[in-house]
């Protein structure tokens, strides 16, 4: 019975935050950006087709990789993040597999491969966008690896991560980005989105 009290305090904090955000609307900070070094756990997750995926291998790729945390029945945050993914895929043109888009569920209780598949279909996801579920413990470890542990799916925060294969570093983006912001960040990571052409990291120097 202490939980309602905790929740009341959390909601109060949330409400205060919202108030603060709205009050500061004159000069909104659209999102927070940082560059991080993360170590991925060697866990086995399951994709929308029910296939086992060795997570570390999937991410430590020669391709650009983008990661977000969503779940099948989430309200506001996931639609926005997923609309961003779908938008990026549209900009990529025909060869959508040149960028590896990875969504990881934070609700492995409910999100079976069938739910993941249905979710991707709703956003008209094309090849190159995988949605992963798996053991709760493994997903906890993945969240921890990204310094993005959500104790509960209702503590969800909008986070997007972009990995550059150049140095294996991650750009961490915290906030609900506009389509332009997302594409800008993607380009800043050294990638191009020219439709139809292969996407490579444009290595400076």
């Amino acid at each position: 019975m202490i939980i309602p009290l905790i929740r009341a305090l959390v909601l109060l904090a949330v409400a205060t935050l919202v108030f603060a955000v709205v009050a500061a609307a004159a000069e909104p900070e659209r999102y927070k950006r940082s560059v991080e070094q993360y170590t991925m756990p060697d866990v086995v997750l399951i994709n929308q087709d029910g296939e086992k995926v060795r997570f570390k291998k999937l991410l430590e790729s020669e391709q650009p990789v983008v990661v977000d945390f969503i779940y099948g029945t989430c309200t506001t945050i996931c639609p926005i993040l997923s609309a961003g993914y779908a938008n990026l895929q549209r900009k990529l043109g025909t060869d959508t597999t040149k960028v590896r888009l990875v969504s990881i569920t934070i609700d492995p209780e409910y999100d079976t491969p069938a739910i993941l598949k249905e979710y991707l279909a709703r956003y008209q996801a094309k090849p190159g966008w995988d949605f992963l579920t798996g053991s709760r413990r493994d997903i906890d470890r993945v969240m921890n690896a990204f310094d993005a542990y959500f104790r509960d799916k209702m503590d969800h925060k909008p986070l997007t991560f972009i990995r550059s294969p150049k140095d294996g570093k991650w750009i961490r983006l915290y906030g609900l980005l506009s389509g332009i912001d997302f594409l800008d960040e993607y380009k800043k990571a050294g990638f191009t989105v020219t439709p139809g052409l292969s996407t490579k990291a444009a290595v400076p120097n």
């Binding site: 060697d42 866990v43 086995v44 086992k52 060795r54 053991s135 413990r137 470890r141």
Partner: peptide, 28 residues
């Protein structure tokens, strides 16, 4: 609270990928 797992095959022919996945289930 399990932080990691790995598979130690009994014989050389044992499938390491299946072993790794099953050790995930076993340890978790």
């Amino acid at each position: 609270v399990i932080n990691d797992y790995r598979y130690a095959p009994a014989e050389t022919g044992d499938d390491p990928d299946s072993g790794h996945a099953l050790c995930g289930t076993r340890c978790n």
